[in-house]
Amino acid sequence: MAGFHDLNVPWTKDTKELQRTVAFLDELGYDVVALTYTYPAGRLPADLASPVPHPLPFPTPSRLRLLRRCNIFLTDSASNFRIPQLQQHYDLIAARPTDERTLQQACQSLDVDIISLDLTQKFEKHFKYPMLGTAVSRGIKIELCYSQAILSSDPTAKRNLISNAVQLIRVTRGRGLMFSSEAKSVLGVRAPSDVINLASVWGLGAERGKDGLTKEPRSVVEFARLKRQSFKGIVDVVYGGEKPPAPEVEKEKQTPKDQTNPLKDQKRKARESMEGTPVSQSGEEKPISKRQMKRNKKAKTGAEQ
């Protein structure tokens, strides 16, 4: 089972506060936490390197997996967001659209991982399913941040957040939603089960609410990881443990004569088929190209005839 995720914990320079927050999230039972750095609205700075230090300056709970994430404001659809460069520095990239057009752009074309809306303000237009549906089908998740509803002293912000959340749940039909805290202080964080209950009060079933804390964010994290590390986002080499121990190899060396003969006559086919399958355990070996596969096949059929 996937663990509980909280993919939006704002990063602060106050190390003690951050350490406390991280320890408390661990205490509440979260497994994956993303520290967020929000770029100020307007143009991105020239140096995109993450201000979040990679090994954090304090001991972190061993069970917890920490990721780095950045938020970028989409104020103008024409500007260049330099997302490929950002991808090198962060594990996750979230876009925060400010109006209708940038939201559409984020849903349809931008290569971000998460769309995070500021739910405390009122939107002029209702959300539409086709727009959000394309985002969900592209693997982008829509984020609901609940801490504003808890911490905010302004009742209209609270009201807006709840009504927007309910609308989003209705429009997306509960698909592709994920919950995160965006807690400015430790007090905005809630335990996973409490968040699930909150979701069910807001009209999302308990099952979907649980998905919003486990399955959906996990798929975002894994998809983002694959985008960065794997070959064209499709093929990834997984470390499958060490190769079988050495003694077998020594045996083969000891009896080279005995092995060659039977292999030539009887087990020729078997040996060929063994060669055809790529060995998944060796990390450096490239997958066989199509041309090479065709050649192998031709040679094989020729040999049979």
Partner: peptide, 9 residues
């Protein structure tokens, strides 16, 4: 669930 939500808040 109402009580629970109130406790959460």
């Amino acid at each position: 669930e109402m009580i629970w939500a109130a406790l959460t808040f």
